[in-house]
Computed example of a mutant assay.
Amino acid sequence: MAKSIKTRRKQDGHTRYESALRDLQIELVKVQKHVIKHDHKVLVIFEGRDAAGKDGTIKRIVEHLSPRETRVVALGKPSDRDTTSWYFQRYATHLPAAQELILFNRSWYNRAGVERVMKFCTDREYERFMEDVLPFEHMLIGSGIQIMKYYLDITKKEQKRRLKDRRHDPLKQWKTSAIDEVAVKHWDDYTEARDEMLARTSSPLSPWIVVRADDKHLAHLNVIRDMLTRLECPQTDKHLAVPDLGVVFPYDETHAQAGLLAK
């Protein structure tokens, strides 16, 4: 009896989630029509630890959008040519043109995260990036590109659970990598890199938006709600575009001091 009640509650919760998600996806379609009509250029960056939920969040955003004007960019390991080119060059070719919504599943901030922690870049390369990234983004914004930056934050316990799930789920085998094996081992290093990245690369023009992502469903819904507040479209239902500030919020140093970021 208790099991059936628990199962029924879980099913009810999933039904409510699917209903809320559909309503928000309808609003995203309205936004995209506005973006296309007015030749807007939109870039959305998703960063976070391994298994933070970037793939799933992006999937829910683009699920019903026009594939012609929507692209997801998830670049692999840099080529030999990439490593000798201007650091931002391989990303610049994927920037949005008029009418396009581009979502980066990881971005140039690789240098501030995994490259920094795993020593894939030198200290000098890292510092050069940290000095250059905001002027680069501000230049893009000045050219008419709207940039939104989301950092999906999860706890160490939740990361362990998700990485274990990846290893045992045959449908998620493509997600596993050598980096996964050391993600938990380097937890503190990634925490330090995250804190420095957020503090040094968040600006009024291109702020970081932190997403507390242990609950995937809440993360999906609230990222979309936050996007709806930031993307201009008079036709959207503003009542739906009200994110839970306990789940998604603009980065501020006081948040780290208050313990709102996973340690």
Rank of each mutant, 00 (worst) to 15 (best):
G144M: 09
E131K: 15
Q146M: 12
P78E: 00
M139A: 13
E63T: 10
P96M: 02
K77T: 14
L140V: 05
Q99T: 15
E100R: 12
W86V: 10
Y87A: 00
R90F: 00
P135S: 03
V73C: 04
L101R: 02
L103I: 06
E100Q: 15
R71S: 07
A112C: 05
S107D: 03
T93D: 13
R124Y: 07
G144K: 12
R128H: 14
A112H: 09
D132P: 09
F104L: 11
Y87L: 08
W86M: 10
P96T: 04
E100W: 04
G76E: 07
S85G: 06
V117Y: 03
H64N: 15
T83F: 06
F120R: 13
I141D: 10
Y126F: 13
D80Q: 14
Q89C: 02
P78S: 07
N105V: 08
H94P: 07
V72K: 07
L75W: 01
D123Q: 13
R116K: 13
P67W: 04
L134M: 12
E63D: 11
W86F: 05
G144I: 06
F136P: 05
L65H: 03
E125Y: 03
E100S: 01
E69I: 11
R68W: 06
V73D: 02
R111P: 05
P96R: 04
E137Y: 06
D82F: 07
R81M: 14
S66E: 05
E115A: 07
L134D: 05
D132A: 15
L134S: 08
G142I: 09
L103D: 00
V114R: 08
H94M: 08
S66N: 15
P135L: 06
L65R: 06
H64M: 09
R106F: 04
